[in-house]
Simulated scan of single mutants.
Amino acid sequence: MTTDRLLLLDSASLYFRAFFGVPETGAEGAVPTNAVRGFLDMIASLVSRSQASHLVACWDNDWRPAFRVEAIPTYKTHRLTEGSDVQEESPEALTPQVPIIRDALAALGIPRLGADGYEADDVIGTLVHRHKGTMPIDVVTGDRDLFQLVDDAAQVRVLYTAKGGVRAPDVVTQAFLAEKYGIADGDQYADMAILRGDSSDGLPGVKGIGDKTAAKLITTYGSLAGLRAAVDGGDPAIKGAQRTRLEEGSDYLDVGPLVVRVARDAPVADVPITLPMTVADPVLMSKLATEHGLTNSFTRVLDALGMA
């Protein structure tokens, strides 16, 4: 029995995890399918466990959007192929699997939504903004950046897969954020993330300010805006090296929110997102199952969707 609940999948986060976590068992010379199988099995597990009524596979149409690069040119530069503006290739055995994942979602009738010029995080942020208050929402990801969407009042939580995968994720609510970081909610998490920066995304942060200091400052002043107002107003509690660092980081703090905060208004298509009740393209599904040995994975998804 399904209940009203929307699952938003950070697709790349999940299929990368599947690629590195599921062994490849195909014949030598065949197109590998471990990421495909793992991703489909994740969907089956998530739908079965959550009994959700709605599902979207959110997609990166642009992994390094121009508006973020314009704000902070170092954004994800470490992921560029040296000497070019091209993203480093994904693992050789993963690249041919991504089109198969797209086809599998299309065959099943599971909506796959992206937006040109935006990342999957922005698609998720937009869909959360669009649907929160209408039903509970679970964001499934291995990316801490999306903790900023946590909102108990709107019943938005994150199922964080970095440690336990989709079968035993950390369920990130405001209580989790308070215990782990000492902050109140998703908005404060975003402000904390801006302050501390993130070397994995090429975000410098304010020099000398890590998680604990950032959390304390945001908690003390309520928000990044409140902290900056206190700095500008000469609050005597902010002094010495800390004041110097915050003042020197002012230009970064002007643009940091443009990069760290996910979009709420990306041009994401408004399509039906209820769980499919019938296979959208049986011929395509049969072809994929036969050519790539995906029969068992498709069967598990169909069973979870109540179509088996």
Rank of each mutant, 00 (worst) to 15 (best):
V128S: 10
V140I: 15
A115S: 01
T81S: 14
V98N: 06
H54R: 12
W63F: 11
W63S: 04
F39H: 03
G83S: 13
Y75A: 12
D60S: 03
F39Q: 07
T134D: 09
S45M: 09
F147D: 09
D103Q: 15
E89I: 00
I100L: 15
D143H: 03
F67S: 07
D103E: 15
V36A: 08
R102I: 03
F39K: 13
P96A: 02
F147C: 06
Q87P: 11
H131W: 08
D138Y: 07
A52Y: 05
A57M: 11
C58S: 03
L113P: 00
M42A: 12
S53I: 00
Y118V: 04
G117F: 11
H129Q: 14
R144G: 12
P65C: 12
R130D: 06
V140T: 03
V56Y: 06
H129V: 00
E89W: 04
D60E: 06
Q97H: 06
R64T: 14
A44H: 09
L46S: 03
I72Y: 07
T141I: 10
E70T: 10
S50R: 09
D41Q: 07
A93N: 12
H78L: 10
F39A: 01
S48F: 02
I100C: 10
T141Q: 13
G109M: 04
G142N: 08
G125I: 07
K76D: 10
Q97F: 09
D121E: 09
A120N: 06
A52H: 01
T134V: 04
P96G: 03
R49V: 01
S48K: 11
R68P: 05
D143Q: 08
I43L: 15
E70N: 06
R68K: 14
F39E: 01
D121Q: 04
T141P: 00
L40K: 12
D122C: 02
P111Y: 09
L127V: 04
K132E: 08
K132T: 01
W63A: 10
R144T: 15
I124H: 08
A115D: 11
I72A: 09
G117Q: 09
T126W: 06
D145F: 05
L127R: 04
H129I: 00
S48D: 13
V140H: 13
